[in-house]
Nucleic acid binder design. Structure first.
Lengths: 151, 151
DNA sequence: TATTGTTATACTCTATAACTATA
DNA sequence: TATAGTTATAGAGTATAACAATA
C-alpha cells in the first residue's frame, strides 16, 4: 500500500506520539521473552545514564507514578537485572543499581532498538536523523519537558 | 530544580516517547470535561485531514486495534461529535463523519494543544520547531511508520 | 469464503489513596 | 509533621478471539 497517512494538522506532539507508538510496537514485537519490555528499558537506561539512584528519581525523570516504579523495579529485581539496597545515610531510600545481567540485557535491547530505528527513520538521511535526535534531545532536556508531574 | 534528565543513550524512539507522554499529560490536564481526550482528538484529526472514511481506515492510519476504534467512535458518537452511517455501496462499512460540534471540539482542543506545545518546545527557536515538525512529519508519512500492524 | 464491524475478555499501563518505616 | 517507598485498587489503553451481517 502506498501509505496514506495522517498529517495531524501540523502539530508536533501527535507526530511524536505516532512515531513512539510505532517504535515501541516494533520493538516489543522483536524482543524475545528473555529480554526486557520497553518500559523496563527506560528504567535501565536511566540507570546507565545517571548511575545508581533512589526510586524517587525515576518518578521525576521518567514521569512515572511512584507506584508504577515499584512494580517495574520488582519485575527487574526478580529477573536479577537490578538490585535495591537501603541508603545507610537515609534508610527510607532504596538505592537502585544495575547488575551485570542488567547491563547486558540493556545492550541486547539496544541492538533491537537500533534495528527498529533504522527501519522507521530510514526515509531521513543520516544527517537528518542526527538532527532529529538532537532537537528531541534538547526539547526533552528542557525543564518543561522533564517528566515533572507538577506536584 | 535544574532539570537533570535522561539522555536515553542517544536513541530517538525513547526521546519521542518522552515528549509525547509529557505532551498528552499536559494536554489532558488542560482539557475540561466538555472537551475531548487526546485519543478522541486523534480520531477527529484524521477525519479533518482526510474527510469521511470507513472505520477500517482508523486502524490502518492510527495503529489502533479495530475493537478500540469501535469504543472511541462510540464515545464520540454519544457526545454528538461524529456520526456513523452505512455505506450504500458496501453495507458492511460504516462511513464516519464529523458533525459541526465535532469540528468545533477539535478546534477547541487544538487551541489547548498549541499552548502545550509552546511550553514544551519553547527551548527551540521557531525555525527549529518547524524543522522538528517537518522531520517528524516525514518519518511518520513514510510507509514503515504508518500504523500498519503487519497483518 | 472473506471482510467490516461488534462484543467479550484479558492483559498492560497509569493514577489515587491509604499505609509503613524512617526522618 | 514530612518524605521514600509500598500496597490495593480502579481506570485508561491495548490486543485477541469469537461472532453477526454483508459481500
Amino acid at each position: 500500500m502506498n501509505s496514506p497517512v495522517p498529517r495531524y494538522s501540523g502539530h508536533t506532539i501527535p507526530l511524536a506520539s505516532h512515531l513512539a507508538r510505532a517504535g515501541w510496537r516494533a520493538l516489543d514485537r522483536r524482543v524475545s521473552s528473555t529480554e526486557v519490555t520497553h518500559r523496563q528499558m527506560l528504567v535501565l537506561t536511566l540507570l546507565e545514564d545517571r548511575g545508581p539512584m533512589a526510586q524517587k528519581a525515576f518518578r521525576e525523570f521518567l514521569g512515572l507514578d511512584a507506584s508504577n516504579v515499584v512494580g517495574l523495579l520488582n519485575e527487574l529485581e526478580e529477573q536479577g537485572l537490578v538490585v535495591r539496597r537501603r541508603n545507610p545515610d537515609d534508610r527510607r531510600q532504596h538505592v537502585v543499581e544495575r547488575t551485570d545481567a542488567g547491563v547486558r540485557a540493556l545492550e541486547h535491547t539496544y541492538a533491537r532498538l537500533a534495528i527498529v530505528e533504522k527501519e522507521l527513520l530510514g526515509t531521513l538521511t543520516p544527517a537528518e536523523q542526527a538532527q532529529l535526535q538532537a532537537l528531541l534531545s534538547r526539547v526533552v532536556s528542557a525543564p518543561a519537558a522533564s517528566g515533572t508531574n507538577s506536584d
